[in-house]
Computed example of a mutant assay.
Amino acid sequence: MTQYMISVIGSSTDATPAPEDMERLFAQVGAFNDDVKAKGHWVFAGGLQPIEDATVVDATGDDVVMTDGPFAEAKEFIGGFWVIEAPDLDVALELAARGSKACEGKVEVRPFQSDDVELNEGA
């Protein structure tokens, strides 16, 4: 089976949900997670802290440079994710649609590279 990452897309313009809305979202996502586990698609998942808590690490030069904040200034960011296993893209997209409904937000689906993909040494 192929592994897919389903990324939950957040926006810098999103308002912080009210406590009762957070409870509803947690319950919906929890039920979705339980179903994904029960059907054997679960690998792992996680929510991320706000983008203000990010640290960019750049060790491409002689010195390691660490910078507070996200790598790029953007209106949208990844707020959390699921890593699932599915037999094909159609199943992954069906799960993503259900995950989007559960978290009441947009998600992006991307397959992981297979083990037989060779990295281009010149890239």
Results as ranks from 00 to 15, higher is better:
Asp34Pro: 05
Leu48Pro: 00
Arg98Met: 07
Gly79Arg: 15
Asp116Leu: 04
Asp21Asn: 11
Pro111Thr: 10
Gln28Arg: 15
Gly79Ala: 15
His41Val: 01
Ile51Arg: 15
Thr13Gln: 14
Val56Ala: 04
Asn33Asp: 15
Thr16Leu: 12
Lys37Ser: 06
Lys39Tyr: 06
Lys39His: 13
Tyr4Asn: 05
Val56Gln: 03
Lys101Val: 09
His41Arg: 07
Gly69Ser: 06
Gly30Tyr: 05
Thr2Asn: 13
Ala38Asp: 12
Val107Gly: 02
Glu23Leu: 14
Arg24Cys: 07
Asp90Gln: 05
Lys101Phe: 14
Val107Trp: 06
Ile84Thr: 02
Leu93Tyr: 02
Phe77Glu: 06
Gly80Pro: 12
Gln28Thr: 10
Gly105Phe: 05
Asp14Ser: 13
Glu76Ala: 07
Asn120Asp: 11
Met22Val: 15
Glu94Asp: 01
Lys75Asp: 10
Lys39Cys: 06
Gln3Trp: 11
Glu73Leu: 04
Ala72Val: 10
Glu20Val: 12
Ala92Tyr: 02
Lys101Tyr: 14
Trp82Ser: 03
Val64Arg: 01
Cys103Gln: 08
Gln49Glu: 15
Glu104Pro: 09
Glu104Gln: 13
Glu23Ala: 15
Gly10Tyr: 11
Ala92Cys: 00
Phe44Asp: 12
Thr67Ile: 02
Val56Trp: 00
Asp115Trp: 11
Asp90Lys: 10
Ala15Phe: 04
Phe77Gln: 06
Met66Thr: 09
Lys39Asn: 14
Asp116Phe: 14
Glu76Val: 12
Phe77Ala: 07
Met5Pro: 06
Gly99His: 04
Glu73Tyr: 02
Val8Trp: 14
Ala31His: 08
Phe71Tyr: 05
Gly122Lys: 13
Thr13Ile: 08
Gly61Val: 00
Glu52Met: 10
Thr67Lys: 03
Asp68Asn: 11
Val109Ser: 03
Gln28Pro: 10
Ala123Arg: 03
Asp63Gly: 01
Glu104Ser: 14
Ala96Arg: 07
Gly69Thr: 04
Glu23Asn: 09
Val36Pro: 00
Asp116Ile: 00
Glu20His: 15
Phe77Thr: 03
Asp14Pro: 05
Trp42Pro: 00
Lys75Leu: 07
Leu48Asn: 07
Glu20Arg: 14
Ala31Ser: 15
Leu89Pro: 00
Gly40His: 09
Gly46Asp: 03
Gly69Met: 05
